[in-house]
Design a protein around this nucleic acid. Sequence first.
DNA 1: GCAAAAGTGTTAGTTGTACACCCATGT
DNA 2: ACATGGGTGTACAACTAACACTTTTGC
Lengths: 247, 247
Amino acid sequence: MTLDELLKDRSEEAKSTYLSHISIDCVVFGFDNGTIKVLLVRMKGKRHWMLPGGFVENHEDIDDAAIRILTARTGADKVYLQQFATFGKKDRSQAFFKQSPALWHAQRFISIGYFAMVDFNQVIPVADDISDKCEWLPLQELPALAMDHSTILSKALKTLQTQVNYQPIGLNLLPQEFTLPELQKLYESILGRTLNRGNFYRKIMALDILEKLDEPRKGGAHKAPNLYSFNVKKYNEAFENGIYDRW
Amino acid sequence: MTLDELLKDRSEEAKSTYLSHISIDCVVFGFDNGTIKVLLVRMKGKRHWMLPGGFVENHEDIDDAAIRILTARTGADKVYLQQFATFGKKDRSQAFFKQSPALWHAQRFISIGYFAMVDFNQVIPVADDISDKCEWLPLQELPALAMDHSTILSKALKTLQTQVNYQPIGLNLLPQEFTLPELQKLYESILGRTLNRGNFYRKIMALDILEKLDEPRKGGAHKAPNLYSFNVKKYNEAFENGIYDRW
DNA sequence: GCAAAAGTGTTAGTTGTACACCCATGT
DNA sequence: ACATGGGTGTACAACTAACACTTTTGC
């Protein structure tokens, strides 16, 4: 089936299942090998990548809808999700389906943006039946996205940056066990600048949110770095009202 | 006409004019006599006050809809408006019109929240035809609001507080001409604590955003305070990337 | 004279920032 | 030996916070 046939097939069902005019788009951040990556999908027969998204069921909280959409795309439960803005310019979405104006997908949508931070290693990207791809793309080398999705993504990133002291970045983007250099590189990636190692060390230690594990990370060249994990209770307490630091 | 009759009268027109399931609610802040006030409306025959709100026309940007709604309620153009969150719990709105489930107003709404800062003295609150009141109420003595509007208002206030260094508070909430004690009281009201006068004076002066007017404010008892106005160009430059201060 | 407003001085304590030094350890 | 990681010292600049003193001025 072509994309149009598929969508037509779904249109009637969608009309009775979902709230009209409302969509959800998710900006999913992951951290892999020192690089921030974003989860993107590509519809069958379309050239542009887009943010994973979906719709809100008639009797569903929008937060629950975002969780449902994200879980379907990542296989990960307990993803950290936060609404950051709603996009509603009058011509933001219809043009993408202008060939088939009768489709459910071709109506005007106002999209609620959520960003997510997930452990890259826990995610297995899953394409749905109207997409042929669902992949991690590095934030630094993104192509132009469909519709206004580049705008949405930029806004998500900016929100994350300005809320760096209030968002549980490390806890959600790093694996269970990690090293201090990894944590520092994560913050450097998000802030877009390098940080002084010694000062970073003292700041993190002063927060008292880390637990040093017995075993260092083995295998690499050079000295094996210490492994740490977060003390989740202390971590959440520290970030509850924002850590008091300017980085 | 009763409220129900009025709403029924409008239902058909609303269905063809507005996007379904989407509403806009505005939290309008004003500053009067040392006190933060919020603009609220009360529907005919309803007990609870609510936020002024409205709907999005089929071919209208949501930001434009918010401006239209606000202008109708305040008579003020050029209001400072900013979207801050979207509220979409499944049961947040229908209960308010449970007696008349067929009405346009009784459908499920997802509401986009905007907050506004306006010059109290430039606003003449205007009730619309389904409301019997539209008034300023002091933030410190608010009654319980209809639906989830207390939640929406709290979120708006918290957003304003956490963005105090990024929001043009003084420029939008104060009249054209104002005194330093007034400006200080405004910040104290929003932050919820007193500030040291001497230090406040130096901070504001260091920002270099004020212009001292020739004439002091006359008429009061005691020494007449100096009048100032903002240098809008310098003001906007200073706030563009957030002023760097913790207050 | 009183009380509010305006402007400045001072000081102690805290933070930010930038370096620099030393040790540990896996290859 | 070398490169990376871990940990600490230090020193200056900048800023915060709290007080206090003085002058101005309308009534």
